[in-house]
Design a binder for these strands. Structure first.
Lengths: 325, 325
DNA sequence: GTGAAAGCGCTAACAT
DNA sequence: ATGTTAGCGCTTTCAC
């Protein structure tokens, strides 16, 4: 383990600018209650650029008692291609607030979240899925604030998406709906939310609750499910997401069933492939960037001591109508 | 900005165990050249567990001159669902070596990589795509070692995958191949590698080089491409990846072309949906976990001063033969 | 075998 | 308006 080469420190900058290290700190942090003349500030900034100085997070965190690092815990299942858009927006919004985002894939047999949090000395841990109590407590003891998407609009939005799926189908005249559940256990919670929304819409329309069937990503199994729905006079099915919907479309073709005439199908999440199925897949899109922005707000709020206000604003889920319904 | 509650420190552990902070450090780090009697070690570890003590990364990094944090930079494009498996394995292998992994989505308008690196004081930055010189230099000045997947087997493997696609098709009797390029510019580099592999196989078999066509995820465009290939007597096409292949299959259906008889199609990456297309998609799978393991080895090697040895071992790409060919 | 003490690079009181 | 100083929590030499 060789020691790494010497790095530029704030003392170097101070020397180059002909000021003290404290002044460098004041300038770089816009420390409130300090009046730095323009000229001094300029010289410091100049030296910073000249030397390509970057404050060391560890030293900053140690001295200040808190870092500007936010750790995002992502569940280790494939949440779909949209996740990137969310993370990107989250990172960008945090950056505006002077915060740095890094992410960690949860559930892996690697390091437990609290260890990672302690290792990078994160001030805030944001999580897409709720943490168990032990973890949450350990995190808090490690000095981190906790923020969850469930605290913003994600949770009700999932339900709203199911509702939109069903309402779309019902508006088209369908009176008996099916629901295609995903097989991955980790998807279960979201699926239950979405299914609830479908049930809401059915109840509201005064029709039977949806006939939910477990599915696998397997053509034969899906063909069987399709036949089963038909037998039970289901004329349209809401799929948990586009992936399940696409698989169902293929299963139907195997069962010699056509969409939307024999069975209408609607997906959710609007993945790129939904546009190139046969027939093109109707689906529900929603504003992932908005989740990122709201979550960042919650983080900033939590850091400034306020309880994050629960933005009741919606993620604008909306129906994308294509030929499959 | 309230100061966070007081956290457990190594001094607390020391007090609880009736030893000095130095001893705690020795025990926790298995410091070489220190012989701690079993009894003392036990007492320290006991106290650690009792207090749920976790060393603060920032203090450790500051004192030791290097952290145990590895930062992985992931390109901000959708690399496909396989990426999670890779990251997970990477994190796990690093954890075995006592290292902590966090990831950062590159290319976002958030923080530049060197800033993130400095903020968390990473010892190593691993990247899936090559970094530009300025970034690389800044990173090194920030005290980080650099490791790339291109240094392990990923690069030649991409080429090998193209080769396997083509060889499979050629073995089936095809003498004129097409190649479906992805439209996202960031995918270009990988696509070029894969296409090179296809060309290799063609040359080796003594047939014409592949007819590469740019594609979009659009049924009409893909239908047009399919007709074009047919006109040019292409009988089989290698798609950049499964997503493109799936879209092509739909385009073909629109053009009243059947796979594999009118045009055989083979994908790459073996995403879950490849099993549920109609017809099921032949594709190339490869061992993503192995990439994770090798990259972790490279990281450890780099940290111990050795130049990472380039594992020539292959990622075991292999053909998954299904009905689309 | 263990502890005391110096410092890592920075921030935040306190001086000036 | 800026410098001086005292730590933040840990590691690491050096004494004992």
């Amino acid at each position: 383990m060789r020691r790494p080469a010497k790095r530029v420190t704030s003392a170097d900058v101070a020397r180059a600018a002909g000021v003290s290290a404290a002044t460098v700190s004041y300038v770089l942090n816009d420390t409130p209650g300090q009046s730095i003349p323009e000229e001094t500030r300029r010289r410091v900034l100049e030296a910073v650029k000249q030397l390509d100085y970057r404050p060391r997070g560890s030293a900053r965190a140690l001295a200040a008692g808190r870092s500007d690092v936010v750790l995002l815990s992502i569940p280790h299942l494939s949440i779909g291609p949209g996740i990137n858009r969310f993370v990107e927006q989250f990172a960008t919004s945090l950056a505006h607030a002077g915060l740095t985002l890094v992410t960690h894939l949860a559930g892996a047999p690697g390091r437990p979240l609290p260890d990672v949090c302690a290792a990078i000395d994160a001030s805030v841990v944001a999580s897409l899925d709720p943490l168990d109590d032990d973890t949450a407590q350990a995190l808090r003891r490690a000095g981190a604030d906790l923020v969850f998407t469930t605290e913003v609009e994600a949770h009700p939005t999932m339900r709203r998406m199911g509702r939109l799926q069903a309402e779309h189908l019902i508006a088209l005249g369908h009176r008996r709906l099916g629901y295609a559940m995903p097989d991955h256990p980790l998807l279960r919670k979201i699926a239950d939310d979405r299914l609830l929304g479908v049930a809401d819409a059915c109840a509201h329309a005064g029709i039977d609750p949806p006939l939910a069937l477990d599915t696998k990503l397997d053509t034969t199994a899906l063909a069987r499910a399709a036949r089963r729905w038909r037998r039970e006079s289901v004329t349209a099915v809401c799929a948990y997401n586009d992936e399940v919907a696409i698989a169902l479309l293929t299963g139907m073709r195997h069962a010699k069933l056509a969409a939307p005439d024999d069975l209408a199908v609607i997906g959710a999440d609007d993945i790129p492939l939904a546009q190139v199925t046969d027939p093109p897949l109707s689906t529900i899109a929603f504003d992932l960037e908005k989740v990122g922005r709201s979550l960042a707000e919650a983080v900033v709020a939590s850091l400034s001591g306020r309880k994050p206000r629960l933005t009741p604003a919606s993620l604008s889920p909306r129906v994308i109508h294509r030929a499959s319904t």
